[in-house]
Design a protein around this nucleic acid. Structure first.
Length: 429
DNA sequence: TTTTGAGTTGTTCGA
DNA sequence: GTCGAACAACTCAAA
């Protein structure tokens, strides 16, 4: 078979191992690795996510011997232009099931087709492709637990090794500069495939054993820390699932991956649910949007609500680009059910600042909390910031770390400092 | 078709 | 400190 040069367009799959689209591309011939700096993404992601992308691209480029070709602009113009420049027949990529990604890929495929070329989509960022888990009658699941059961029964293929690949990229192919890391003061995780594995090995050797109980404790660091890597495809969930056994904690961790897949499935079937109520009956529910609402929102953003666990979480987000999942629920519940603000305001703030910001997981996590989404029993789910704080940060260590002006408060008063008013900043009242 | 049982992550009270 | 029940009563998957 004659070798046919192709383009591999990287998006949310910044790795070389277990990469079905790379395997498909490398089987054809020399591969030109491409990343497109899409202004739409650059405008929407905050400095944390951009910094991780920048470092991830640098690492990927290094792993390919400096071959990565970067082009800036609208992919609908940029991708067909590069394909024409190189004279390739096909552009390979991993399928994207998000609302923007799907539209973009259809437009790119149409543009390529007018030149007699094709966009070949192989694999997805999920163990099971969104849209493929259905009930017996073919309809989608609307509740997590039955979805997860069917998802597990689907199974997944064994991870693929990195294929031998002949890269045909820089400097022979012209490239814009790799994006520089934006200035950010956030403490970010190390980027890239190797860092993802290192994190996974550290997790399986340590915290995984206690994951079922410790994952809910923001003071203990019992989570995997893998969400940023999953966000950019520096690791594929299939690679993690392949190494998980049957213990309680391993099953709980697999269920967390199932949530990610469930929300991607929901978004693929309801593209508007990224920013609109999944349950449109809830559109009638009043929320505050006036000037006082803006003030409450800004205090929430800064971590100056006066509720210690809420403020700790909001400050952790600004300082690190990440917030513990338990605390995400607490601050979300506070915004929606105490401040009476639209969940979209909170979700938007999260999407700017989260290093792992993912539309499907973020929007549907918010909607679950707001009671507009997939919670099967939303009518009594209201979080108390004080009860949650006592239960999940029992010693107040998490609060003391992120809200230092409360660090001197002893005992249980840390959770509700209005009970002892000495030496506490005014905004706590 | 009807019925049944369960639903990520809640809160509070009282034994 | 832990546990179970009540809260109020909906939705939905599956038998």
């Amino acid at each position: 078979m004659s070798a046919t040069p192709v383009v591999l367009w990287f998006r949310r799959d910044l790795r070389l191992a277990d990469h079905p689209a790379l395997c498909a591309a490398a089987a054809e011939g020399p591969v030109t690795p491409l990343f497109v700096l899409d202004p739409l993404f650059l405008d929407r992601a905050g400095p944390s996510r951009l910094a991780l992308l920048s470092a991830g691209l640098a690492g990927l480029d290094e792993a390919m011997g400096g071959a990565l070709v970067v082009r800036s602009g609208d992919p609908v113009a940029v991708v067909p232009a590069l394909a024409a420049e190189l004279g390739v027949d096909s552009v390979h990529a991993t399928a994207d099931f998000g609302p923007y990604g799907g539209r973009r890929d259809r437009a790119v495929a149409a543009a390529l087709r007018t030149d007699g070329r094709s966009l070949v989509l192989t694999g997805s960022p999920y163990a099971v492709d969104p849209g493929s888990v259905t009930k017996d009658d073919g309809s989608p699941y609307a509740v997590f637990t039955p979805f997860a059961k069917a998802w597990r029964a689907t199974g997944w293929v064994t991870p693929l090794p990195e294929p031998p690949t002949e890269w045909h990229g820089r400097p022979a192919v012209g490239s814009d500069p790799l994006p520089p890391a934006p200035a950010t003061t956030a403490e970010l995780p190390p980027a890239g495939e190797e860092a993802a594995y290192a994190r996974w090995e550290q997790f399986t050797a340590g915290a995984l054993d206690q994951y079922a109980s410790a994952r809910d404790r923001p003071d203990l660091g019992g989570t995997s820390g893998l969400s940023p890597y999953l966000r950019f495809g520096m690791v594929h969930p299939r690679q993690l699932l392949a190494e998980l056994g049957p213990s309680k904690s391993e099953r709980v961790f697999a269920a967390e991956l199932a949530w990610r897949e469930f929300y991607a499935d929901v978004l693929s079937r309801h593209p508007r649910s990224g920013w609109e109520n999944l349950d449109s009956r809830m559109d009638a529910m009043p929320v505050d949007t006036g000037r006082d609402a803006r003030h409450r929102f800004e205090a929430w953003q800064r971590g100056e609500t006066g509720y210690p666990i809420v403020d700790a979480g909001m400050r952790q987000l600004l300082a690190t680009g990440w917030m513990h999942n338990r605390v995400r629920m607490v601050v979300a519940s506070f915004l929606v059910k105490d401040l009476h603000l639209p969940w979209q305001w909170g979700a938007g703030h999260f999407m700017v600042h989260l290093v792992d910001g993912d539309l499907a997981s973020n929007s549907h996590g918010w909607q679950w909390t707001a009671g507009t989404g997939t919670d099967a029993a939303p009518y009594f789910r209201i979080f108390s910031p004080v009860t949650q704080s006592k239960r999940f940060d029992p010693d107040g260590a998490y609060i003391r770390r992120w809200v230092p002006e409360l660090a001197h408060i002893d005992g249980d008063d840390i959770h509700a400092p209005w009970d002892s008013r000495r030496g506490i900043p005014l905004f706590f009242f």
